[in-house]
Design a binder for these strands. Structure first.
Lengths: 104, 104
DNA sequence: ATCCTATAGTTTATACTATAAACTTATTTA
DNA sequence: TAAATAAGTTTATAGTATAAACTATAGGAT
């Protein structure tokens, strides 16, 4: 008889699991809508890294990107999509399952 | 005035954060002591990957490795160290902090 | 004896990924 | 008009995870 695994549950989605992206998404989960500069300050990422990570998230349709001008300066707004919100929910579930067996 | 970050807390330790290693450590957290073959079955990793990951964990002193022979066959036992246990605790704390702000 | 298969791992080669450095474009300011 | 600032993007590099290939030993089968 094949035994049941001691630890159950799927592995977390790597796109969300990466600390930089997870923090970005967590910020968006809280404020719903944020611009490039604000996220930069919140996360302490470099601009290059922030740009790349948000692009990946946008490509996966977890966030939307809206580019505009304000005071003759570019401004980029990001927002979590429903798909993004769902992905975060699932991620949270998966992680809770594994964290549950770790010592306090 | 500089604002406080919306999301607080350190980034998770990457050594533990990696899904393959996290699962291995979680298994050891539960059973305390396990051999190579058992971990192989539990995690579904390839032997190569398992070997490499456990070596990394051993090098970081999060687990101990004990090699022996049983029935003329090599047998490798792994065990979580106190340091490993502490690292898991810290990891759990850090992750809970960020998961807390995610939607349910 | 030697050939084949299985067991238990390790080493190495590759493909991926995160990240910072360098670059772009536009706008003030000196 | 030269320099500095702002807001991003592109690219180069270094690091990492993972599987494929390899090593070593044992136990039959022929």
């Amino acid at each position: 008889m094949t035994q049941k695994a001691v630890i159950s549950g799927d592995d977390p989605d790597r796109l969300l699991h990466e600390p930089a992206r997870l923090r970005l998404l967590a910020n968006l989960a809280v404020v719903r809508r944020a611009d490039f500069t604000w996220l930069l300050q919140q996360t302490g990422l470099t601009r290059g890294n922030l740009s790349v990570q948000m692009s990946r998230l946008a490509e996966a349709e977890l966030v939307t990107v809206e580019k505009m001008f304000r005071d003759n300066r570019p401004r980029t707004l990001y927002e979590l999509t429903n798909k993004g919100r769902d992905a975060l929910r699932q991620y949270k579930k998966n992680m809770h399952k594994i964290l549950a067996v770790l010592p306090d």
